[in-house]
């Protein structure tokens, strides 16, 4: 890839930063070149995010429908599984899974809920809520 072939596709997701790609210059050296994006990379990443967002909306619907607790939403929004969340909090996976049930989560003490809220760095209030399905 020559320096002038390095893609500059202005990927918005880069948020103003750029990635370094290596390419050959006119003198035959391979140098670092700043790239603002590559549509191919953007598409692949986009694929992954589409899937994540679809699944998240699905979970959100289940929360709104009383099938899952708000914890399920916040956990998934942080790209975590019950196993990962449990490991990070130093608690058992079955505990987290149990807390995904709406009634059980509701009856948890504030102290316990706070442990989750603290990890997600949100307020207790925010932990209990989920965004409206029609945000965006």
């Amino acid at each position: 890839m020559k320096v002038d072939q390095v893609p500059q596709d202005l990927d918005q997701g880069y948020e103003g930063i750029y990635k370094i790609r290596y390419a050959r210059d006119k003198d035959g050296n391979i140098i670092k070149v700043k790239s603002t994006g590559w549509s191919v990379e953007e598409a692949a990443t986009g694929c992954a995010w589409e899937d994540i967002n679809e699944s998240l909306i699905d979970t959100l619907k289940k929360v709104k429908g009383g099938k899952l607790s708000p914890l399920a939403y916040h956990m998934e929004e942080a790209l975590l599984t019950p196993q990962l969340l449990a490991q990070n909090l130093g608690i058992w996976t079955w505990t987290v899974k149990r807390h995904l049930k709406p009634q059980i989560f509701k009856n948890l003490s504030d102290k316990k809920k706070q442990i989750y809220a603290d990890y997600f760095e949100i307020s207790l209030n925010d932990l209990l809520q989920t965004p409206s399905l029609y945000d965006e």
């Binding site: 890839m1 290596y22 390419a23 050959r24 670092k32 590559w38 191919v40 990379e41 692949a44 992954a48």
Partner: peptide
């Protein structure tokens, strides 16, 4: 898509480190 992401998204200098190796 995940294969492509491992190649390009994670910061490899392009083509899964092959350009960097060149």
């Amino acid at each position: 898509a995940s294969v492509v992401r491992m190649q390009e998204e994670i910061g490899t200098g392009g083509a899964g480190f092959r350009y960097m190796y060149a």
